[in-house]
């Protein structure tokens, strides 16, 4: 397993698994920041469309409503609305599939 986003000095976000579609801020990141993003298809970059506080997540790809949201290489819930690349992913647009009464 390779953490493509974990190499290099001064990294400001972390992709915990290559199959994730969210990355996590390692510092308070500002709207408009351009971050390098490695993927299976090669290196590219992403522009944050919102400020992302430390330890919060942003989408690295477009995630449609009801689409899978992934972190740690696993499903952490589904999108309750379309999420655009560089946008904050949190309780306003991500819902659990494992909370009580669901998914079991």
């Amino acid at each position: 397993m390779v953490d493509q986003q974990t190499q290099g000095q001064g990294r400001r976000h972390i992709l915990l698994h290559p199959s994730d579609n969210t990355a996590t801020a390692l510092a308070d990141l500002q709207k408009g920041e351009i971050l390098p993003l490695a993927s299976g298809k090669g290196n590219s970059s992403i522009t944050l469309t919102e400020s992302i506080p430390f330890a919060h997540k942003f989408a690295t790809t477009f995630i449609p409503q009801a689409g899978e949201v992934r972190k740690y290489g696993e499903l952490i819930g589904e999108a309750s609305q379309d999420i655009h690349p560089g946008g904050l992913v949190h309780i306003h647009n991500l819902v659990s599939q494992r909370s009580r009464g669901q998914g079991r």
Binding site: F54, I76, G77, I91, S96, R98
Partner: peptide, 23 residues
């Protein structure tokens, strides 16, 4: 299952129970 993630977890960036447990 009903009380997690806690308000403190959510303020810290955790959105769902799955995410908390995976961490």
């Amino acid at each position: 299952r009903g009380g997690n993630p806690s308000a403190g977890n959510i303020a810290g960036g955790i959105s769902t129970l799955e995410e908390k447990s995976l961490g």
